[in-house]
Nucleic acid binder design. Structure first.
Lengths: 249, 249
DNA sequence: CGCGCTGTTGAAACTTGTCAAAGTTTGTGG
DNA sequence: CCACAAACTTTGACAAGTTTCAACAGCGCG
């Protein structure tokens, strides 16, 4: 049995940096730009930055300089309690835009760390604002991405506020499945990049509960679990469990 | 004993519509604009719209036309489950900007309804985008307001994900207190505009739990409760209960 | 090859939800 | 302006779901 998901459809090492050739540009900030706009965009944002597992993109309290678009990899952002407890605020993958929390006060309010070796496009925020004054479709798309973040957060609030453990985990798995699918990976087989504890933090549950519910799902034949490997067997049943109450990780 | 909070510091009936004379413009979208920019802003956005208690500003699924800045009043927004359950996503008061969720897909994703007679400034979104291309400080302030919404949502996620009922309610009361104070009302005496059920929905708790915790707070002398009237007696103790884990309603 | 981190599982404790009943306030129509 | 109905709130007893504590197993990195 094959335990690894399909190999990555993007060969990072061969990619040119610029957006116009990036296979993500449909998902990412320059979506909807015309070729000439894209060229302009490229001229302004040509920074590419690899980050290793465990590297922080930014930390709560640090000044906002740039937003980061994920070119490849997997990232977690979390807010800290004063007492040291961590609440995971989101998991992010290729095409997602990070750092929006920092615009409000020009200081980041959460920590963002790579859960696997990743590659970012760094987008100086001042430049983005300037350029988006010149390119209306860029401006609009940026607004949509911020708004999408708000909608996503509402989904999480819904999940945390009114779903039981099983429902939360089902919604979480479905959300991952959809997001992987949108990026060309298998929607039914994938590796979790995060620990049970991080999943639990995100879903407002303890790691033991995550472990138990995953085991129960497996007993019921909904999924197959082996460590971080997940195979979704009965997608429809999972969907029913989550009651379609959309959550978008 | 006086059970009513101070009368409103803003006499709505005497206000002119335009932002330049609005006592909220420090809190609201045109914050940071110069006088000439403000005049320009006024020329574009002079719509003022009263809404009665129970009126919807917009509903999930409806097209985004305008954002709404609250001039006066109190508003609730909520997302609906398919099964009919409601999750309150936020409570909003004077100076808050509503409708940001609709930018993502040009369709609103939540319902927004007035909890008391209120007055809105309607801001056509297309015009806002256009104007913010011309006025960088407006553009930047708009971005900050969207970002603030994201930060606020993270605070709620933290609250829902890792605080117990008492902590959640303490944080909620403190947040209301701060927001009233910022608008010139008493930070220690106010009327809740929403029902226990709505508070519960927002905090991920049942209405009975809200009622019980409020009673317990009263027994412990932290607050005085009479129906919707709340008087905070031991602000510091409440703060400690909430562990300062900031939530911004 | 072993130590540490991660994950699994069980039993007991705790928090919150559910159900039910009664009291209170608010709004409406006469 | 009163009366009644509807909506909201409080409180208790009990049930359910989740966490806590603890022990142990497995995997992976050095």
């Amino acid at each position: 049995m094959k335990l690894q998901p399909k190999s990555m459809p993007i060969d990072v090492s061969n990619l040119k940096t610029i957006c116009s050739t990036c296979s993500l540009h449909e998902l990412c900030l320059p979506a909807e730009l015309s070729q000439s706009e894209l060229d302009l965009f490229d001229r302004v944002f040509d920074r590419r930055r690899p980050v290793k597992r465990g590297d922080y993109l930014y930390r709560a309290g640090s000044a906002l300089h740039s937003l980061f678009a994920i070119r490849a990899g997997f990232v977690k952002s979390s807010v800290m309690h004063e007492d040291g407890r961590e609440q995971v605020a989101g998991f992010h993958m290729a095409g997602d835009l990070l750092g929006l929390d920092g615009i409000s006060t020009s200081q980041h309010t959460c920590d963002t760390v790579a859960l696997e070796d990743s590659e970012m496009c760094e987008i100086p925020f001042m430049s983005l604002e300037k350029l988006s004054r010149e390119i209306p479709s860029l401006q609009h798309h940026f607004h949509r991405m911020m708004s999408r973040e708000i909608v996503r957060d509402h989904g999480v609030m819904l999940l945390l506020g009114s779903m039981r453990a099983e429902e939360r985990l089902a919604a979480f798995l479905l959300s991952l499945s959809q997001r992987f699918a949108a990026r060309g990976y298998s929607p039914t087989e994938f590796h979790l990049r995060m620990t049970r504890e991080e999943v639990g933090s995100y879903l407002g549950l303890k790691l033991e509960t995550i472990s138990r519910v995953l085991s129960r799902f497996q007993e019921e034949g909904l999924i197959e679990v082996r460590n971080k490997y997940i195979k979704i067997i009965k997608l429809e049943d999972l969907r029913e469990l989550a009651s379609q109450r959309g959550c978008s990780t």
